[in-house]
């Protein structure tokens, strides 16, 4: 094979991969602007029915409330998870000794516990504590995850010990060293952690399905799932709903894309 043909094949391959990756999303956006019949007919150009679909959606579902719920749950989860897990990951690395290393290994095994095993006991615990249909109920199980703790522990490894020593001599206490030295230096790790945690919280479907029986407390993923359970589906309206559900994760993804890659690079070193 000549050098040139290798190059051509490479470009063809990667272009096809990129097109396949993008097509379903573009199709979704186009469908959101068309009537259901046009979507079925395979219309691939933007239509003018976006507003109409939006009005139909507002009539069919309390989109505003679900959207607000999802935002509220995801933002609070992300803030708390980052605070708790970064502090733990930092401590596991900076103050590590034998006992803490063993504890860390035990914590890691929690990654293997499937969520369906926890679902029923958690449901029973939370219904006893009157946490069903509540924000606290949604966020509690996602605040501390072994994966995030591991990620912050890994990146704390590259945090220079001299900075800590110098800060101690300057009279900063340990918490100040963490908040004023560690957090600002580890921006890209925090960005990667934000992306992962926000997306997981926003996408969470199984857990809210278990505890959010009250219609007022439901989320966007639950809403779009419910729309499809009807007999006749309005594809234009459905794809608009799917599109709206995708916007927040897409924004987080694009805003933090560059730091995400950097943060992951730091974590896999």
């Amino acid at each position: 094979m000549t050098k040139k043909s290798t190059k051509t094949i490479t470009y063809i391959f990667i272009t096809i991969a990129a097109l396949i990756s993008v097509f379903p999303l573009i199709w979704m956006i186009i469908a959101a602007t068309n009537r259901s019949v046009d979507v079925i007919a395979g219309k691939l150009t933007f239509g003018t029915k976006l507003l109409e679909n939006f009005q139909n959606l507002l009539q069919a579902q309390p989109v505003g409330r679900f959207f607000w719920n999802s935002c509220k749950y995801s933002v609070i989860t992300t803030v708390l998870a980052l605070a708790v897990c970064s502090l733990a990951g930092y401590a596991f690395e900076i103050f590590h000794d034998k006992a803490k290393d063993i504890l860390f290994t035990i914590i890691l095994t929690a990654m293997m516990i499937p969520f369906v095993a926890l679902m029923v006991p958690l449901f029973q615990m939370f219904s006893k504590a009157k946490l069903l249909n509540s924000t606290v109920g949604f966020i509690l199980p996602s605040i501390s995850t072994p994966f995030l703790i591991m990620m912050f522990r890994q990146s704390a490894r590259s945090f220079p010990k001299e900075i800590i020593e110098a800060a101690r001599i300057d009279g900063l206490n340990e918490l100040q060293i963490f908040t004023r030295m560690f957090i600002p230096t580890m921006k890209s790790t925090y960005a990667a952690a934000t992306t992962i945690t926000f997306m997981n919280a926003w996408n969470n479907y199984l857990w809210p399905k278990v505890i959010m029986s009250d219609n007022n407390a439901q989320t966007m993923p639950m809403m779009i799932s419910n729309i499809t359970s009807g007999y006749v589906t309005d594809y234009g309206m459905l794809m608009l709903a799917v599109f709206i559900t995708t916007i927040p994760t897409a924004i987080v993804f694009f805003a933090l894309q560059k730091s995400f890659a950097e943060g992951i690079t730091g974590a896999v070193k």
């Binding site: 379903p24 999303l25 199709w27 993923p221 459905l238 995708t246 894309q257």
Partner: peptide, 21 residues
């Protein structure tokens, strides 16, 4: 960016897109 883009979609959302397609 194009190849990473699918990760920006919610799990339920892409399941419904594929169901429709």
């Amino acid at each position: 960016t194009a190849i990473f883009l699918p990760c920006a979609t919610s799990l339920v959302a892409y399941a419904i897109i594929f169901r429709t397609l």
